[in-house]
């Protein structure tokens, strides 16, 4: 019982962090068709900016300022980089974002060094919020959940209920038509890119304090964000939300369940010694692989993802 409750809590938490990170990407990916490899790098920038700003202004102001600053960086990258590269097709865009990712990583190393920086949540949020069966649950984790859910609701309302959202959605499927109607589509693209980067940065502000702020943080979360986008369905915020939570839960429960491949096969009547190379692999060891297995399966059997709006 304890294990189930905590694994669910942990899974949802990890899922929400993934959602914060991937919601921006799913917008960028679906609108502009850009596989933004640098997305996780903006997440990292968010953490480092918050660390640097927070040293003078404190955590709360940094939490507001860092995403705005990163959004500005994102806007510049789109306006002066991506827009020019766009003409040369998808491969060029892909390589461009790939280069940006490396650039950001090297710059971060140059400025802040290769070692982790001491970036931690404010003291108010470091106390445990409640204790269940002897396990403390830190308030910062709950705070993170609240921020993520608020972000989801805000984004969803903005996309579905406002005029801006209407234009964004229209530009998503019919960019030329929206352009002919007199809307500045490139400006919309720049806005979406900036907001996407800002959201990644917000995830970084929180993720960096929750986990570790070091130059490797982008690289470790980068690939899994794409899984979320593909599994959830391109351009679907709801899909990204569901996929994030699903992946969070799968990974957490895989660690919690102490079963090996031989146990699993035994269920199907296949006997494999748990000392053999294959049989001794435990579910926990497979955990980091599962999201990618899901990615492959979804691409084969349901290319538009769980809630994707269009096939492509």
């Amino acid at each position: 019982m304890e294990t189930i409750v905590f694994s669910t809590l942990n899974g949802v938490l990890y899922g929400l962090l993934l959602f914060m990170l991937s919601s921006g990407l799913t917008l960028i990916f679906s609108m502009m068709g850009v596989l933004n490899f640098a997305h996780a790098s903006f997440y990292m920038l968010g953490a480092y900016f918050a660390y640097a700003i927070g040293a003078t202004t404190g955590f709360w102001a940094a939490m507001l300022l860092a995403p705005i600053l990163v959004a500005g960086v994102g806007a510049l990258v789109e306006r002066y980089g991506l827009r020019n590269v766009h003409r040369h097709g998808h491969v060029a865009e892909l390589l461009f974002t790939f280069g940006i990712a490396f650039l950001i990583e090297e710059i971060v190393k140059l400025i802040w060094g290769r070692n982790p920086v001491p970036y931690s949540p404010p003291a108010v949020l470091q106390q445990p919020l409640f204790t269940l069966w002897g396990t403390q649950y830190p308030s910062f984790r709950v705070f993170m959940m609240i921020v993520a859910v608020l972000m989801f609701i805000t984004l969803w309302l903005m996309l579905k209920k406002t005029r801006i959202g209407l234009i964004v959605q229209a530009a998503l499927t019919h960019p030329h038509m929206v352009g002919h109607l007199g809307h500045n589509v490139p400006l919309v693209f720049m806005g979406v890119f900036a907001v996407g980067c800002g959201m990644a940065a917000l995830a970084g502000v929180i993720g960096g304090a929750l986990l570790v702020t070091d130059p490797a943080m982008a690289l470790t979360l980068g690939p899994i964000v794409f899984v979320v986008v593909v599994v959830g369905g391109m351009g679907s915020l709801g899909g990204a939300f569901v996929a994030s939570i699903l992946i969070g839960l799968i990974q957490t429960f895989a660690v919690a369940v102490d079963a090996s491949l031989s146990d699993l096969l035994a269920r199907f009547g296949v006997m494999v010694s748990n000392r053999s190379d294959l049989g001794r692999i435990t579910l926990a060891q497979v955990a980091p692989m599962l999201p990618f297995l899901l990615l492959v399966l979804v691409l084969i059997f349901r290319p538009r993802g769980l809630m994707g709006a269009r096939e492509s």
């Binding site: 304890e2 294990t3 905590f6 694994s7 942990n10 938490l13 990890y14 002897g134 396990t135 986990l211 490797a216 470790t220 979360l221 990974q251 957490t252 660690v255 919690a256 102490d258 435990t282 926990a284 060891q285 955990a287 980091p288």
Partner: peptide
């Protein structure tokens, strides 16, 4: 237990298991 090298972001599930 062996966990994947440098791939685990959140160790809380492992801690839950230890507890």
């Amino acid at each position: 237990e062996l966990h994947p090298l440098g791939r685990v972001r959140d160790f809380v599930p492992y801690i839950t298991k230890m507890r």
